[in-house]
Simulated scan of single mutants.
Amino acid sequence: MLPSILVLNGPNLNLLGQREPELYGRETLDDVRRLCEREGETLGLRVDFRQSNHEGVLVDWVHEARGTAAGLLVNAGAYSHTSLALHDALRAFEGPILEVHLSNIYRREAFRHHSYVSLAATGVICGLGSEGYRIALQALRARLAAAAG
């Protein structure tokens, strides 16, 4: 059975390609999903790709992942900077967690420079657009392979 990676996308990411394309690009979330599924197939990973605008739904999905996913890839959007609930849920996950942001959060407003998700994450990738998702999946695969010995 292929290792499963849960890819979580937070609020407003459903508007990719429409919302601030000069900042986030013209790719849609469906484009990013297809990229992740193709990369997952190449790497021998099963990708479960989800998006919600609701904090509690994201928290519930992290709880669910504790029994089903080998790793997490998280783009929590604005919840990265505000959600202690998501932080706490991620801290309870035992596998590797990679945080991804399409834009470079350190070149943006000061309030975006702090991420509660980062405090729980194994690593962070930001500013590379959708390519960050591909790199995160590669890094998760390498971590899982190293852990398997």
Rank of each mutant, 00 (worst) to 15 (best):
G44F: 10
A70L: 09
W61L: 14
S52C: 05
A139S: 13
T82M: 06
G40L: 09
E64Q: 15
N53I: 07
A92E: 10
V47K: 12
S118Q: 08
D30S: 12
A65M: 03
S80W: 03
R50L: 13
V59P: 10
N53A: 06
L2P: 14
G67F: 13
A110L: 13
S80I: 01
Y133A: 10
E41H: 12
R50Q: 15
A78G: 15
L98P: 01
R46I: 03
S115Y: 01
H63F: 10
G127N: 04
L140I: 13
A85T: 09
L90M: 11
Q138G: 13
V124K: 09
S115M: 02
L35W: 05
L84A: 14
H54N: 11
E131S: 04
H101W: 07
C126S: 08
L102Y: 09
S130I: 15
T28G: 12
N75K: 07
R46V: 12
V59T: 07
V117A: 06
G149R: 13
G40M: 11
G149C: 07
P3I: 03
S103L: 07
V117M: 04
L35R: 05
G132W: 02
Y24W: 05
V7F: 02
R26Q: 09
M1K: 11
L90F: 07
V47H: 11
R46D: 11
H87C: 09
L137T: 10
L90I: 05
L144I: 14
T82L: 09
A142H: 13
G129I: 06
G40K: 11
Q51E: 11
G123C: 08
E55A: 06
W61N: 09
I5Q: 00
S115P: 01
R91N: 12
H54V: 12
L119T: 12
E55V: 07
L73N: 03
G40I: 10
L2G: 03
I105D: 00
A145K: 09
R50N: 10
S4Y: 00
G17R: 00
P21F: 02
A145C: 01
T122W: 10
H63C: 06
L23D: 04
G67I: 08
L8F: 02
Y116K: 01
P11R: 04
L45K: 14
S103A: 11
A69S: 14
G95Y: 02
Y133F: 15
L72W: 09
A78Q: 02
L2S: 15
A76N: 01
P21Q: 02
G129R: 02
H54A: 06
S80F: 01
R34L: 15
L16D: 05
E94G: 14
V57E: 14
G129S: 04
H113K: 07
L29A: 03
T82Y: 08
L29H: 08
G40V: 05
N9L: 00
R50E: 15
